[in-house]
Amino acid sequence: MSQPEQEITPEQLELERRGILLTTVEGLYNWGRRSSVWPMMFGLACCAFEMMATGAPRFDLGRFGAEFFRASPRQADLMIVCGTVSKKMAPMVVRLYNQMPEPRYVIAMGACAVSGGPFRDGYAVVQGVDRYIPVDVYIPGCPPRPESLIYGIMTLQRQIDQQHLKGVPWYGKGGDTRERPIPQYGPHDLVLPEEG
């Protein structure tokens, strides 16, 4: 269990020796969630291959519980946006994000997903996926090495550890679970529909 703030007292140590572990509900809940983050298969471009290489024998994402790539967004916890988001694809990205059930996380992998990357000046490239959906972890690189992706997933795991049950969007009143607006195809560019 990862509770970095608390130290283990001698009484706890004694209990552990007898096979009894003490933790909080929140600690247990977050441990379960962070140790089995299931990504969605969303390889758009070149970074998808480094994502697959991370799942491959040499780098082995399975050690972190994240090797089970789900095809359907309804069954996934994490959307790793690997590759350039073109303007034609952007409405699909938002639609898929809206279809993911909470708790959901987004990792923007690679320079293209972070900011448009080497194709930033293009007329048909979205300059960063965070224009349309909220991103939790940004991984720069072109493409980022598999070790970078693993570090990104570990960063996400640390973020999950620090989420408190009281403040999460899917329980209670705090947080933002609205559906993100889906951009429409306009005559010259993508157009976000009017809010409200």
Binding site: A45, S86, G122, A124
Partner: peptide, 30 residues
């Protein structure tokens, strides 16, 4: 098609010949 249209042909017209070599890498990324 067109969901990965990255405007490479237009971008290369704005760069010199040497600067376009990295764009060729990203054509068939395998």
């Amino acid at each position: 098609l067109g969901y990965l249209h990255r405007c490479q042909e237009k971008l290369a017209e704005g760069r010199n010949y040497l600067q376009s070599i990295p764009y060729t890498d990203r054509l068939d990324y395998v």
